[in-house]
Computed example of a mutant assay.
Amino acid sequence: MEFGILMGDQPVASSAREHLDLMLRKAEAAQRAGFTYLTIGQHFLYDGFRWFQPVPLLARLAAELDDHVKIGTTVLIGPVHHPVVLGEELATLDVVTGGRLVVGLGTGYLPQEYATMGVPFDQRYRLLEELIEVMTAMWSQDRVSHHGRFWQIDDLPTHVHPLQQPRPPVWLGAMRETGVRRAARHGDVWTITPQQTIDQVDALIRTYAAERTSRGLPLNPLPLRRELMIGDGFDDAVARFAAVARGKYEAYAGRGMTLLGDDEVRNFGDTVRDHVILGDAETCRTQIADIAAALPVGPLLVRPHWPGMDAEQTEAYLEQVGREIVAPLRDLESRSFADFLETPAA
């Protein structure tokens, strides 16, 4: 089992220099702790929190990493980008990183980001599909012609190709069945979001596998995002998690993420119990091993930093998780897709 981290936002009250220093120290600490994937998402004009844009940030971080560590976008808000601009930037980033880029794409959930960019929010799924089609052609062909619903390219040369051919791995985020089917058709894997229970994930993986199999596409382990907090026991882990994460959960609810309602934010322990890995180190290892035994997943991506945590807290978290989770579970193998599909649904 490989492990990775999600590198997110920081309150705008902290300086940009402090924020960059946090990112550099986080990347160094994660690599030292045995994590092999470093990923970051994307937002624009975000209220109260600073999101560094992924492409330039990852290019900077790549200079600090060993050759076996991969970097990725989890996720870029694909539909607000022009595919030629984004395709060339990502191809360049793949070259800069020596072919270690993972391209995580999604649609986001904030209509105002689309309105600001002049992109129709109600067309975001069609835009995402066509964006992937154009970028894949740009990455793998010497000349491109594309006549689609949103973009037109008439037999033009391509000049920036990624090292990974025919394209860097494309991870597509989705939370519901329609999106999972889209990920099966247009991506290389579906990135499992952290809010879903194991039973929900089981059902959606079967949907994903059916769609892939019907098209003769290969089945590979699926990246699993999960929040993780180690404590002296369950209650202590919940208290520690609430201390750093409650504010972000409240911010999500305030921005209309429907999976988190007001009641769920108030009853925080009950809210997180079924989708966050919590407990002492042994209990957390057991939970991860149980997930790996049940589902064809990997890598496992965790969030080591919540807005407001400083670099020392983040480094301490990564050191602990590296020592008590990553190192002991390094040889853990997840369930194969073949074995998973041979058993009835949960």
Rank of each mutant, 00 (worst) to 15 (best):
Glu227Trp: 14
Arg149Met: 05
Val55Phe: 00
Arg25Ser: 06
Pro166Met: 00
Arg303Trp: 12
Arg240Ile: 13
Arg167Lys: 13
Ala209Cys: 05
Gly48Ser: 06
Gly78Met: 04
Asp199Arg: 11
Gln141Glu: 14
Asp290Val: 03
Val321Ile: 13
Pro162Glu: 01
Ala237Cys: 00
Leu163Pro: 03
Arg32Gly: 10
Leu301Tyr: 06
Asp9Ser: 15
Val95Lys: 12
Asp232Tyr: 05
Ala115Leu: 09
Val201Pro: 03
Met135Ser: 07
Ala33His: 05
Arg335Asp: 05
His43Lys: 13
Ile40Asn: 02
Asp21Arg: 06
Ser145Val: 00
Tyr252Gly: 00
Phe268Asp: 10
Gly269Glu: 15
Gly298Thr: 12
Pro194Trp: 13
Tyr37Thr: 05
Gly87Leu: 09
Gly99Lys: 03
Ala281Val: 01
Ile230Thr: 00
Ser140Cys: 01
Ile71Glu: 07
Leu219Pro: 02
Arg176Ile: 06
Gly233Trp: 10
Trp306Asn: 12
Leu318Phe: 03
Glu28Thr: 04
Glu250His: 05
Phe44Cys: 02
Asp280Gln: 10
Thr213Leu: 11
Met7Ala: 11
Ile132Leu: 10
Asp154Gln: 09
Leu57Cys: 09
Asp270Glu: 15
Ala237Tyr: 11
Trp171Lys: 10
Pro54Asp: 00
Glu18Trp: 03
Trp306Lys: 04
Phe234Trp: 15
Ala115Arg: 08
Arg226Asn: 01
Ile40Val: 10
Trp171Pro: 07
Asp232Ile: 06
Ala345Ile: 14
Pro194Arg: 09
Ile277Ala: 04
Pro344Thr: 04
Ala16Met: 03
Gly261Phe: 10
Gly269Leu: 11
Gly231Val: 04
Val134Lys: 05
Trp190Asp: 01
Leu20Thr: 02
Thr271Ser: 15
Phe337Val: 02
Gly148Arg: 13
Asn267Leu: 10
Arg215Thr: 12
Glu18Leu: 04
Gly173Met: 03
Arg167Met: 07
Val265Gly: 06
Gly279Phe: 09
Met1Cys: 10
Val84Gln: 11
Glu2Asn: 15
Lys26Cys: 10
Val85Cys: 00
Pro169Asp: 01
Thr178Pro: 04
Gly72Ser: 14
Asp263Thr: 13
Gly173Ile: 01
